[in-house]
């Protein structure tokens, strides 16, 4: 049995334990899944700043679909099909978004929201919601909204392109709106 077979069996064993409610096994399994998901996302052509989104979407799907894993079959194949699906979903979403959004630097910089006073303090609930965002979205919110940096400054600070920051900010606001309205409701 080669190394990859052993790893596959080990992951399958961890999932069987997770199906029975073993939290430690589940934690170890999810951590071991992350590099595999990253590789699948990169292989599918997901931009580097969106790989974490695919990782998190896939982890959520693993959680919801864990009852469908059959220990008689390969865990890696099960995981890869989920990761590939989520990567394709993200690429399609990005494609649709790009076709709708207008990237106008001047419009962003002159938007009334950009002139507002920086938010120095945010309440605990909002802070927790921001911390729960994917890395790229969290950075966009922190740099452009909480620290009130310009698009160029934020791009320099994070090493991300202005376009990526705008897309991430747009998504972060959408996610936060949904999460906070759910909590209120």
């Amino acid at each position: 049995m080669d190394h990859s077979d052993q790893a596959n069996r080990r992951l399958g064993g961890l999932m069987v334990s997770a199906q029975a409610g073993d939290r430690a096994a589940y934690d170890a399994l999810l951590r071991d899944c992350v590099p595999v998901i990253r590789a699948v996302a990169r292989g599918r052509g997901v931009p580097p700043d969106a790989v974490d989104d695919v990782v998190q979407e896939t982890l959520l799907t693993i959680h919801r679909a864990r009852h469908t894993y059959d220990p008689a079959r390969s865990f890696r194949t099960w995981l890869r099909t989920i990761a590939e699906r989520r990567a394709i979903d993200l690429l399609r979403r990005q494609g649709r978004q790009r076709s709708r959004e207008v990237h106008d630097e001047a419009a962003y910089e002159t938007h009334p929201a950009a002139a507002q006073t920086p938010v120095a303090e945010v309440d605990a609930g909002l802070r927790q919601a921001i911390d729960g965002l994917p890395e790229g979205q969290r950075q966009a919110i922190e740099e452009l909204t909480l620290k009130d940096r310009s698009l160029a400054e934020a791009a320099q600070a994070t090493g991300r392109s202005p376009g990526a920051l705008k897309v991430n900010l747009h998504r972060a606001l959408k996610t936060l709106r949904a999460r906070l309205s759910r909590e209120e409701g």
């Binding site: 997770a18 199906q19 029975a20 409610g21 939290r23 589940y26 934690d27 999810l30 951590r31 992350v34 974490d52 990782v55 998190q56 982890l59 959520l60 959680h63 864990r66 009852h67 469908t68 894993y69 059959d70 911390d131 729960g132 965002l133 994917p134 890395e135 969290r138």
Partner: peptide
């Protein structure tokens, strides 16, 4: 990523036994 760590922790906290499909 920090947020992935958080997510794994949250998913672990919400883990319940499941009946296999």
């Amino acid at each position: 990523a920090h947020s992935t760590e958080n997510l794994i922790r949250e998913l672990g906290e919400g883990l319940a036994p499941v009946r296999r499909a």
